[in-house]
């Protein structure tokens, strides 16, 4: 069996054992490098190509044993590592609930206190930043951990942009008087400010995600 066929057999066995995504791809890269390094060393020691490939395959381990080892180690990981997509969806949902809850509380507080219109406007702008800041921290964590594959990460970034860059607490100027401002709760429009937040969100998420994915190339 050629090394490429061996790698293909390992890939299939990993799939059969439910190992996929970045974890599977990263392991396959390592096994590929291991096989190639071993073959190179054996050829250097005087083995012919067929024997070198056979010995390297045997030393690496059977596709079944490698897939089982990958599964065992994955099971030892935390719940978050084992089910990254589900875990990040749940944590994302919790972030949304936390943001909405804190905004609702802030909204009620501002309404009941009846601050001056200028104070309410300033406080509203600041409170509207809260979900964005919480969400950015969450997104940065996702990017740094590299638990999600590209598609899932792009999806969570898009959702974060859609949700976090909207304004939730709005001042209703039609009802506002000279002294007080009336607050309402709902998804706001996309203003220039929201656009800037989208830009910063995308920039930060790419800043933390891409460097880990780019391989530093050196000549050897």
């Amino acid at each position: 069996m050629q090394p490429e066929n061996q790698i293909e057999a390992i890939r299939l066995e990993l799939k059969r054992n439910g190992i996929k995504g970045n974890y599977a791809e990263d392991l396959i890269e390592e096994w590929k490098d291991h096989l190639a390094s071993q073959i190179e060393e054996l050829l250097h020691s005087g083995y012919d190509e067929d024997n070198a490939q056979r010995i390297a395959r045997e030393k690496l381990g059977s596709p079944n044993s490698l897939a089982k080892a990958a599964k065992i180690q994955k099971e030892k990981s935390s719940w978050y590592d084992k089910y990254p997509l589900l875990a990040s969806s749940i944590s994302g949902l919790l972030i949304i609930l936390l943001s909405l809850g804190s905004l609702a509380a802030a909204g009620f507080y501002l309404t009941n206190k009846q601050f001056a219109a200028s104070t309410t406007t300033l406080a509203t702008s600041l409170f509207n930043l809260l979900p964005w800041i919480i969400g950015l921290l969450w997104l940065t964590h996702q990017a740094r951990q590299q638990l999600l594959n590209r598609k899932s990460f792009a999806c969570s970034t898009t959702l974060a942009c859609l949700f976090l860059c909207s304004s939730f607490l709005k001042i209703d100027h039609s009802i506002s008087t000279n002294t007080y401002a009336q607050l309402s709760f709902g998804i706001g429009y996309f203003s220039f400010f929201s656009g800037s937040k989208v830009f910063v969100t995308l920039l930060l998420s790419l800043y933390f995600y891409i460097p880990n994915r780019i391989e530093q190339t050196t000549s050897h």
Partner: peptide, 24 residues
């Protein structure tokens, strides 16, 4: 089995006990 060390290495990285640097 030599290949079995890689899943262990990856777990140790996830647990932050090892850091990893990629190269080509």
């Amino acid at each position: 089995g030599e290949g079995c060390i890689y899943p262990i290495l990856h777990r140790l990285v996830r647990q932050k006990e090892l850091s990893v640097r990629k190269d080509t």
